[in-house]
């Protein structure tokens, strides 16, 4: 059985795993984005806070994903919880950093004008600052998504959802029938999903960024 035959044969379970994989990554990106943007908003005005938040998020990223997931299992058990926690933690750095950079990069004269013509603090943030920082935040989310794609595959170690289980069981059974096909199918699936999501990001960027600030 070659790879194509294998994929055709297992299409049902592969496509389900793929869907779960993509869905988990998208959901984790959204959670990471909400947390990351809130953290970014909380710290961007203070240089110390920004440095701390960035350093902390970087520190998380330096922990090897395999180790982090392993460490989370005793606390959160197996399955979805450790996987989601790990993904969200890894996704924070690009989002927090880009939020800080994006909000910090807004021309002070624009926020001064916004305030000066009577926008409330919340109005300035939501209608001006976040709108202007949006391309940067979205870029952070894009990087986070790509990171998570790979890391979720490793989360299969904690019985997480997605294509990782294909890769793992293929590798575990190395040498036996279809083991290589199984691992390859899982890996290629991750790559293809990553490319697809990246394309979707490009579209989202296009339709959610004002023409006035689109590069």
């Amino acid at each position: 059985m070659n790879l194509f035959e294998y994929v055709a044969d297992r299409w049902g379970s592969l496509s389900l795993q793929g869907l779960l994989h993509a869905s988990a990554v998208v959901q984790c990106t959204i959670i990471a984005a909400v947390i990351g943007v809130l953290v970014g908003i909380a710290v961007y005005r203070s240089p110390l806070g920004s440095a701390l938040a960035t350093a902390l998020a970087s520190a998380i990223l330096t922990v090897p994903s395999f180790a982090l997931i392993g460490l989370l299992i005793p606390i959160l058990g197996l399955g979805v919880e450790p996987s989601v926690t790990a993904l969200v933690l890894y996704g924070l750095l690009p989002i927090v950093r880009n939020t800080i950079v994006g909000l910090g990069g807004v021309d002070p004269s624009i926020t001064d004008a916004a305030k000066g013509i009577g926008m409330s603090r919340l109005g300035v943030l939501s209608r001006v600052e976040l709108r202007l920082a949006w391309p940067a935040i979205l870029a952070g989310m894009r990087v986070a998504t790509q990171l998570m794609m790979g890391i979720l595959a490793i989360a299969a170690y904690a019985k997480g959802p997605g294509l990782g289980s294909e890769i793992f069981s293929g590798l575990v059974r190395a040498g036996s029938a279809n083991s290589l096909n199984q691992a390859l199918a899982g890996t290629l699936g991750v790559v293809i999903l990553a490319l697809l999501l990246d394309g979707i990001y490009a579209l989202i960027g296009r339709y959610t960024t004002s023409r006035g600030i689109r590069g």
Binding site: D107, S109, A113, V128, R131, S210, G212, I213
Partner: peptide
Amino acid sequence: GYAIQQAGLFPHF
């Protein structure tokens, strides 16, 4: 009314 140097216009509007 408030008008400033370099207008301070909102670039995304």
